[in-house]
Amino acid sequence: MTSTPLVVLENVNKHFGDLHVLRDIDMTVNSGEVVVVIGPSGSGKSTLCRTINRLETVDSGTISLDGQPLPAEGRGLAKLRSDVGMVFQSFNLFAHKTVLQNVTLGPMKVLKQTKAQAEARGMELLDRVQIGNQANKYPAQLSGGQQQRVAIARALAMNPKVLLFDEPTSALDPEMVQEVLDVMTDLANEGMTMVVVTHEMGFARRAANRVVFMADGQIVEENTPDEFFTTPRSERAKDFLSKILTH
């Protein structure tokens, strides 16, 4: 694995009103690395993810992608966002567009690909997430697991440098969790750089290079998955793991 820093957060702080949601966050994600972010509800995991493609602004500190600080707005920001793919808990597919149109919209409108190019690549990606035969259906006609796989294909179609996942399986019925995790594991094995907020420990152990544990807006602990899950160092992490392991 190479160790070129791809996403670098330095001393990042973020408030929602009086609430200090991100406290002095320093984090580096290297190219090809898979980082799992874990932590109690309200600890700032989603906010962290969202600051990386600037769906949330930060109050202080810097975030850079591939050596470039995030642009504040305008075309530069749109370009940055197209380099950072995001997969949401609630899929967020465009309800008025077919599965294939969901996947080709970004490439056509942002990357200015032709329709033929975008559709060829779109079908390739849909086949890869095993949903090619549903290309002309609308999102509401698919199961949650299928919708989430479409959302992954939609993000991949932009050829992003890094993919962010915010609890991609939390909204799914249990029997659909695995099909989505399988797709994510394949991506990880192919060397995709990923930041994944999830409580799926099986996935973390199998696919992650590193686990980042957050609590109260801070990164409390970082370690390899094995070390983290078997011998957590901080009390917060021990406490948290005992809770999610027993339910």
Partner: peptide, 13 residues
């Protein structure tokens, strides 16, 4: 849903 708007933004629209 706001999520669709955010998804579109995250694609770079």
């Amino acid at each position: 849903p706001l999520g669709q708007v955010e998804a579109a933004r995250s694609l770079g629209l």
